[in-house]
Simulated scan of single mutants.
Amino acid sequence: MKFVAFERAKQGTGASRRLRNTGKTPGIVYGGEGEPLLIELDHNALWHALKKEAFHASILDMELGGKAAKVLLRDVQMHPYKPMVQHIDFQRVDAKTKLHMKVPLHYVKAEESQAVKFEHCVVNHVMSEIDITCLPADLPEFVEVDLSGLKKGMSLHLNEITLPKGVTAVTRGKPNPVIVSVVTVAESEEPAAEGAAPAAEGAAKPEGKGEAKGDAKAAPAGKAAAGKAAAPAAKAPAAKAPAAKKK
């Protein structure tokens, strides 16, 4: 991919802010035999270029002052909430010096595998990119991973994939990490639960009837008992007030 950059004379927070207000993005080019160089790019063109995968993982042709140079994208600083690129870094490429880069993994033919097609499993992508080292001429845009041989219960490790010629994987921690795993989908138990529901409801109905009848029978007895208990209290004579003594 190609892009056009221009030399930037001023630096600092204020100068960068004024540059962004005019639709430009400040940047820097470093590495190689030359000194670090301040540059500026058209923001709209840069914004659309950043949406392409190749812009992040391939050698770029930078046109600066009528001369072409090979560079790699190294860092992008985005605004916290606005769709704006605040700063961008590029590194010069030396044809004889090995590069250390992250390249994306492209998974293909998963739907043709036995695990997905016949065993109804789900393929889980554990890693979406890997670290590699290689010469600039051997740098791949991406690494393709064939998943057609997956079966139930399998896991695909890094050393089981084929890397392009001249490319070496770089690992940290685990020497041979898992990049893909096959997950079995649990069978639904809803039909069994639905079949058991009518039986449970049928068993509960007689108990409900019995309870209702029992409550109905118990209600009159309760009322009668309450009436008997209240009757003596009603028949009890009221206490007579003492007669006033005659003087």
Results as ranks from 00 to 15, higher is better:
163 L>A: 07
163 L>Y: 02
163 L>R: 00
164 P>D: 01
164 P>S: 05
164 P>H: 05
164 P>M: 00
164 P>K: 02
165 K>D: 14
165 K>N: 05
165 K>Y: 06
165 K>M: 09
165 K>I: 06
165 K>T: 10
166 G>H: 05
166 G>P: 01
166 G>W: 03
167 V>P: 10
167 V>C: 04
167 V>D: 02
168 T>E: 15
168 T>R: 03
169 A>D: 02
169 A>H: 06
170 V>Q: 13
170 V>S: 03
170 V>Y: 04
171 T>D: 07
171 T>G: 11
171 T>L: 04
171 T>Q: 11
171 T>M: 00
172 R>D: 13
172 R>W: 13
172 R>K: 14
172 R>H: 15
172 R>S: 13
173 G>T: 06
174 K>S: 15
174 K>E: 15
174 K>F: 12
174 K>G: 11
174 K>H: 10
174 K>T: 11
174 K>Q: 12
175 P>M: 06
175 P>F: 10
175 P>A: 10
175 P>I: 02
176 N>Y: 07
176 N>G: 09
176 N>V: 06
176 N>H: 01
177 P>G: 03
177 P>I: 01
177 P>E: 02
177 P>K: 03
177 P>C: 07
177 P>H: 06
178 V>H: 06
178 V>D: 10
178 V>L: 03
178 V>S: 02
179 I>Y: 00
179 I>D: 06
179 I>S: 08
179 I>L: 04
180 V>W: 03
180 V>E: 01
181 S>M: 01
181 S>W: 00
181 S>V: 06
181 S>A: 13
182 V>Q: 00
182 V>G: 04
182 V>K: 00
182 V>R: 09
182 V>F: 05
182 V>I: 01
182 V>H: 03
183 V>R: 14
183 V>C: 05
183 V>F: 14
183 V>Y: 15
184 T>P: 03
184 T>V: 13
184 T>G: 12
184 T>Y: 06
185 V>F: 08
185 V>M: 13
186 A>T: 07
186 A>P: 15
186 A>N: 13
186 A>E: 13
186 A>V: 14
186 A>F: 00
187 E>V: 11
187 E>T: 14
188 S>K: 06
188 S>D: 15
188 S>I: 00
188 S>C: 09
188 S>E: 08
189 E>A: 09
189 E>H: 12
189 E>M: 14
190 E>K: 11
190 E>H: 02
190 E>L: 14
191 P>D: 08
191 P>M: 00
191 P>N: 10
191 P>L: 02
191 P>R: 05
191 P>V: 04
192 A>N: 09
192 A>R: 09
192 A>F: 05
192 A>V: 04
193 A>L: 13
194 E>C: 08
194 E>I: 14
194 E>L: 15
195 G>P: 00
195 G>N: 08
195 G>A: 13
195 G>F: 12
196 A>N: 11
196 A>I: 04
196 A>C: 06
196 A>F: 10
196 A>Y: 10
197 A>M: 11
198 P>G: 01
198 P>F: 04
199 A>E: 12
199 A>P: 04
199 A>W: 11
199 A>R: 08
199 A>F: 10
199 A>K: 12
199 A>L: 14
199 A>H: 04
199 A>S: 02
200 A>Y: 08
200 A>N: 10
200 A>I: 12
200 A>W: 11
201 E>R: 09
201 E>Q: 14
201 E>V: 09
201 E>T: 11
201 E>C: 08
